[in-house]
């Protein structure tokens, strides 16, 4: 009797709503701790990044002008999809991580809950961060937040899923489009996240997920004029300086935080309006009041 042979997955980049191979033809080998096998993920090139930027730019109109209600429902659906694939995601966390099975499931659960949290912000942030301003004179003066545009995200490897989800959902829930570069040392869970996104009615291009070398891509991210903001945590001083220096040419917003691993579990803090605010631009409107 012959034994059935597994059909193993080909890992791809997620760009413009499609799963594509890297044009570089290069891969990022990741050793699967539990299976002892080596998985080859795509090593995204500069060209892949540019394709992702093009897709993200194209999606700005659809996603940026979608109602908060709709965006909220789509983020909630991402939570639903992740819940369905809870075990699979925990398995992906086991590939390179060292956490206990219980801890892995806890991280998946926290990530699901984080998505639900950010889903709720999608139609409320205007009321918290916007407002009417009391100017002297016969004018209406109101300030409303608007999405910054295309946000590049450099997520850390610990806690890989919770951090990726938090850093993705914050700009996404308020209408930014995103390009998430998975951490090189632990890219599998983020790559799997693309499959959650792909089944959640997220418009093509609103979320793009790349695997590849951060050293190689960070400069290109900083240089690209159509990326409007970059979100990163715990970069080395040198890398942060390089990012800021090269972002200066396009007046890019650089959001960088130093966070310990336990900090990501504090839901209220990591899902606060101040996690979303760095990816919003305040627009102030004046109009005279007269008969």
């Amino acid at each position: 009797m012959s034994q059935r042979v597994d059909v193993s997955k080909t890992w791809k980049l997620y760009i413009g709503g499609r799963f594509v191979r890297s044009e570089s033809g290069q891969s990022l080998p990741v050793k699967h701790k539990r299976h002892g096998t080596t998985v080859h993920l795509c090593k995204a090139s500069r060209k892949d990044l540019r394709d992702a930027v093009e897709a993200a730019t194209g999606a700005r109109k659809t996603w940026g002008t979608a109602s908060g209600y709709l965006r909220g429902q789509i983020l909630y659906r991402m939570a639903e999809m992740l819940e369905c694939r809870r075990a699979e995601m925990a398995e992906a966390l086991a590939a390179t991580g060292s956490a206990t099975p219980k801890k892995r499931l806890e991280e998946v659960d926290a990530s699901i809950d984080r998505l639900v949290g950010f889903a709720g912000w999608a139609d409320k942030i205007e009321q918290i961060l916007g407002g009417q301003n009391a100017v002297p004179g016969p004018y209406y003066n109101i300030t409303v937040p608007e999405p910054t545009g295309v946000v590049g995200i450099l997520s850390p490897d610990k806690p890989v899923l919770l951090a990726s989800v938090s850093m993705l959902a914050a700009p996404l829930c308020v209408g930014n489009t995103t390009i998430l570069l998975a951490p090189e040392s632990n890219p599998l869970p983020t790559a799997l996240l693309a499959e959650i996104v792909a089944t959640s009615d997220v418009p093509s291009g609103a979320v793009n997920i790349l695997t590849g070398s951060r050293d190689e891509l960070i400069g290109h991210m900083a240089d690209h004029r159509a990326i409007n903001a970059i979100s990163a945590v715990n970069l080395s001083d040198d890398m942060l300086q390089q990012l800021r220096e090269r972002s200066a040419a396009s007046i890019k917003r650089v959001r960088h935080e130093r966070l310990s691993q336990p900090a990501w579990s504090k839901h209220e803090e990591r899902c606060s309006p101040w996690c979303v605010e760095p990816f919003l631009e305040m627009k102030t409107m004046w109009h005279p009041s007269a008969c």
């Binding site: 100017v135 004179g137 004046w286």
Partner: peptide, 20 residues
């Protein structure tokens, strides 16, 4: 960052000013 509707160049300390 600032949109003046049926007016222009209005400024005040209570009104956020700045660009995108």
């Amino acid at each position: 960052g600032v949109i003046w509707c049926n007016t222009y160049n209005q400024f005040d300390a209570a009104s956020p000013f700045g660009g995108i």
